[in-house]
Amino acid sequence: MRSIDGAVLDLKRLDLLATGDSVIHRLDARAKVLTTLVFIVTVVSFNRYEFTALFPFFIYPVVTASLGNLPGGYIVRKIIMVIPFAFVVGMLNPIFDRELFVRIGPLAITGGWISCASIILRTVLTVGAAFIMVGVTGFLSVCQALERLGTPRTFTVQLLFLYRYIFVLTEEGARASRARELRSCGRKGLGLASFGPLIGHLLIRTWLRAERIHMAMLARGFIGEFHSHQVSGFGWRELFYVAGWSAVFVVLRMENGAQWMGRLVTGVLS
């Protein structure tokens, strides 16, 4: 279990990355959201025994992260944290799928192991792409992109409000939980008897805060509509970005790039 403070710091760090300035950061958010979607769909569209053909797809997250100047170690650490979950999910495949898939000399590998490895690889790719997208775009821009791609205003406003107050409320929650911990004299667990009131108090304070925010909104003339001005930035550069990457993904989906490269090399060597 991650600590509350740790999670908030992590969130802030990813959020701060998006304030950077690079070729990728300057692209319209819609281009990055769409490209990431195409990427994820292509990656998961492979059949479950595909393993090697997934490797060439690393080109996308690696290039984006490099152009966006994201700290590689940080992104890798974030992805590694997710791998155990992927392993738990894929672990059952070797048990249920015991058919021989490939034999390399004395080695016989079952389909289950291949598909398990494939699941882990898919996780690394899709999770990595999502983190990197947030890191080079920022939540605010992602929301604006979603809105301009047709998401209802009510929902994007909700996303922005939620995101804004995560920082306030997680701190409040962390304070309450720390105060309880300090008075529980080393006993570890938090029983339901004290959890209920703790969360209840937090809920009531949250409610009162919502009322104050509403007051602050009314005081500044809020009448139920959110106004925003956005400059359209979807130009040729963005079109080229989306189309270019999509073309790469489609080619890599049709042709096993790893296979091709491997043949080239083994062919040259023999």
């Binding site: 922005l160 995101y163 804004r164 306030v168 805060r209 104050r212 925010i213 007051m215 602050a216 909104m217």
Partner: peptide, 9 residues
Amino acid sequence: DADDQLFMP
């Protein structure tokens, strides 16, 4: 509490 007043992104 300024956090109540600053609600925009």
